[in-house]
């Protein structure tokens, strides 16, 4: 059940990337997709047990597998930095396009 939800999230993100026209929306869809992937890693980690794998004297039950969690932490950081980079790129692009539109407008008004 949970697994189906996770895959639905990934697919939602993917379709968002395909169908959205706005670049910022595309980036947000990509974020959705990566959220799905992260959730899937957490899900895989929790197959063995649900408790946080911290060393202590009392044993609360089965531990979650720490390896996928550790791995996905790296992936979260990378994904986050890539998104920041892409947003900067889109902002810069928008600024350049805005400016070129303005110069074109200025030229048109000068001709009249």
């Amino acid at each position: 059940m949970l697994e189906a939800c996770v895959f639905a999230t990934i697919l939602c993100g993917f379709f968002g990337i395909i169908f959205k026209k706005n670049l910022v929306m595309k980036i947000i869809s990509m974020d959705t997709m990566s959220t799905g992937v992260i959730a899937y890693y957490v899900l895989v980690a929790s197959r063995g047990g649900l408790f946080t794998p911290i060393f202590s004297t009392d044993n609360p039950g089965n531990y979650a597998d720490p390896v996928p969690q550790a791995v996905i932490l790296t992936a979260i950081v990378i994904g986050f930095s890539i998104q920041a980079l892409m947003l900067v790129g889109v902002m810069k692009l928008a600024e350049i396009i805005q400016r070129s539109k303005q110069t074109r407008l200025n030229k048109i008004t000068r001709h009249e």
Binding site: K26, M30, M33, V37, A75, G89, V90, L93, I96
Partner: peptide
């Protein structure tokens, strides 16, 4: 830092990142 270069770069980053998400799964 021209608009064309940034767009080409963004396109590259976007494609490869989506592919890498599939790869992670």
């Amino acid at each position: 830092r021209t608009d064309r270069a940034i767009w080409v770069g963004l396109r590259y980053l976007f494609t490869s990142n989506v592919a890498m998400l599939f790869y992670l799964v």
